[in-house]
Amino acid sequence: MRRTAALVAGLMLAVTACSSGQQAAQNRQGQAGFVSGTGNVSVFAPADRKQAPALSGTTLDGKAWTLSDQVGKVVVLNVWGSWCPPCRKEAPDLVAAAKELGPSVQFIGLNTRDLDPAPAKKFVQEFGVKYPSIYDPNGKALLRFRGQISPKAIPTTLVIDKTGKVASRVVGEVSKETLLGMVKDAG
């Protein structure tokens, strides 16, 4: 009898844990899901490039940032979230590329769906990210890129040419080498 009660209790605990795990996964999917993508690069010929939408916002360090102020520079826009495993994996490559390319290329992060800025700030500190990131907890800035970035495709990296047009895109993780090539092609 005790053995049966223990077995039933164990099964109930397992079912509860499984249900809790499934619910947690559903919550993550609904609130902060990501599509890691394939990492394939889409490169657009100059004649086929579309204008990047207006982008502005407040960075994690409280400063105003506007894409229109960057005309004349190549801009690397990386959409990320602190909760996103592929974002964590690609962060060192983005940091290394930004360092190698220096101030001639403007890197900007677009932090999305971190409802509290603390995890995003911790991510920036943990990975040594020196370039700014716009804090976009509700995804409004991200939605401006509809047609160029899927709202669920996180991470995504765009390279915007000196005239403000999207020159290339990676849906999923980007490597340093790929990013350097994308920037060179956009120039």
Rank of each mutant, 00 (worst) to 15 (best):
N138M: 13
G72N: 12
L60M: 06
G81P: 01
W80C: 03
P92K: 08
E177K: 14
R144Y: 01
K152T: 15
W83R: 02
G72I: 04
I154C: 01
A97D: 09
A118Y: 08
K63W: 08
G139L: 04
I160L: 10
V76Q: 03
C87K: 03
W83M: 03
L143K: 13
D136W: 07
L143T: 12
K121F: 00
Y135W: 15
G62S: 10
A141P: 00
P92W: 10
G147A: 09
D69Y: 07
I108D: 00
K176W: 04
D161I: 12
Q125T: 14
P137L: 09
L94R: 04
G128T: 04
R169P: 00
D93M: 03
A141I: 10
R146W: 03
R113M: 13
G109Q: 02
S175H: 05
L110N: 08
S68Y: 09
P132V: 11
L158I: 11
S68W: 11
V95K: 02
G172Q: 04
P103E: 12
Q70R: 14
A141T: 12
V170Q: 07
P117H: 09
K176H: 12
G172Y: 06
L179W: 06
D161M: 07
S104N: 14
K165T: 12
L101N: 07
K162F: 04
A97G: 07
E126N: 12
V170S: 06
D136N: 06
V124E: 03
R146F: 10
P132N: 11
A153F: 08
P137F: 09
C84G: 05
L110F: 10
P92E: 08
E100T: 11
T58N: 08
T156N: 07
I108P: 00
Q106Y: 07
A64E: 15
G72W: 13
V174T: 14
L115D: 14
V75I: 13
T178R: 11
T157R: 04
I149L: 08
V166I: 15
V159F: 06
R144E: 15
Q106V: 12
S175V: 12
A141Q: 15
L94D: 04
I134P: 00
A97R: 04
G147T: 12
K165W: 09
S175I: 12
L67E: 01
I149P: 03
K140V: 14
R88F: 07
P137T: 12
D116T: 14
F127R: 05
V129E: 00
L179A: 09
V76Y: 02
I154S: 04
L179T: 09
P132R: 05
V166C: 07
K130A: 15
K162Q: 14
W83F: 15
K121D: 07
I134A: 01
F145G: 03
L67A: 13
K122D: 11
G102P: 10
P155C: 05
C87P: 01
S150E: 13
K121V: 03
V159K: 01
W80F: 13
R169Y: 05
G102A: 08
R169L: 11
S168V: 03
W80I: 11
F127M: 04
K73L: 13
S82Y: 06
K121L: 06
L110Y: 11
T66Q: 15
E173R: 09
K63V: 10
T66K: 15
S175N: 08
S168L: 07
T157Y: 02
T157A: 04
